[in-house]
C-alpha cells in the first residue's frame, strides 16, 4: 500500500519529499516525509515553520543507527520478525528515541515487545536489562520486600 502511494506521488512530483535529519553522531539523513510525519516532534516543527527542508533538523538524542532501525520498522509496517533481530540495547534505544520523537504507534509496538521480554522475569534480570542501579537502603528494601513478599513467587531466577 504505502509503496504504491509513494510511487504515485513520485510520478506526480518527480521526487518524494524528504526531510533532512541530523543525528546525535552528526550524520545527516534524508528521510521520506511520510515517515517524518509519524515523528510528532519534527512534524509540529515543520508544520509551524513551513520549513526549508534542506536545513537539517537536529535530533541530539537519537543516534544514526537507532534512526536507521526506526525508519526500517516504519517502512516494514512494524514487522515483528524484523524487530526480533534487535539486540536488547537496540530495543532500549528505540524505546527512548520513540518517546523523544513522540511516535505513538512505534511506542505501543516497542512497549509490547519489551513487556514480552520482561514477562515473568526476576527483579535482578530487569535491573540488568535496563541498567538500573539499586538505590534503596537495605532497610527500605527490606520494608518493600515485606509488603510485597507474594509477588516474588513464580518469577524466574534468571
Amino acid at each position: 500500500m504505502q509503496k504504491t502511494e509513494g510511487e504515485e506521488s513520485k510520478a506526480e512530483n518527480e521526487e518524494v519529499k524528504q526531510v533532512t535529519l541530523m543525528t546525535s553522531d552528526g550524520v545527516k539523513m534524508k528521510v521520506e516525509i511520510s515517515i517524518v510525519y509519524e515523528m510528532e516532534i519534527v512534524r509540529s516543527f515543520i508544520e509551524v515553520n513551513d520549513a526549508d527542508h534542506s536545513v537539517p533538523f537536529p535530533l541530539p538524542n537519537v543516534s544514526s543507527h537507532t534512526l536507521d532501525l526506526i525508519i526500517e520498522l516504519v517502512k516494514n509496517e512494524y514487522d515483528d520478525e524484523f524487530m526480533k533481530t534487535f539486540s536488547h540495547d537496540e530495543l532500549k534505544e528505540v524505546l527512548v528515541a520513540a518517546n523523544y520523537l513522540n511516535m505513538k504507534t512505534l511506542l505501543d509496538f516497542i512497549a509490547t515487545a519489551i513487556a514480552n521480554l520482561l514477562e515473568k522475569k526476576s527483579v535482578e534480570f530487569i535491573r540488568n536489562f535496563f541498567n538500573i542501579v539499586n538505590d534503596f537502603t537495605p532497610e527500605e528494601e527490606a520494608e518493600i520486600r515485606k509488603t510485597n513478599e507474594w509477588v516474588f513467587q513464580d518469577l524466574d531466577e534468571d
Binding site: I114, A115, V123, F130, N134, N148, V151, F152, D154
Partner: peptide, 21 residues
Amino acid sequence: KILSLLTTKEAIATSFLSTRW
C-alpha cells in the same frame, strides 16, 4: 505503558528496582 502489559504481580515486582520505580 510497559507495566500495563505485564500482570499486576509483575508490575508490583518492579517497585524493587530502584526508588524511581
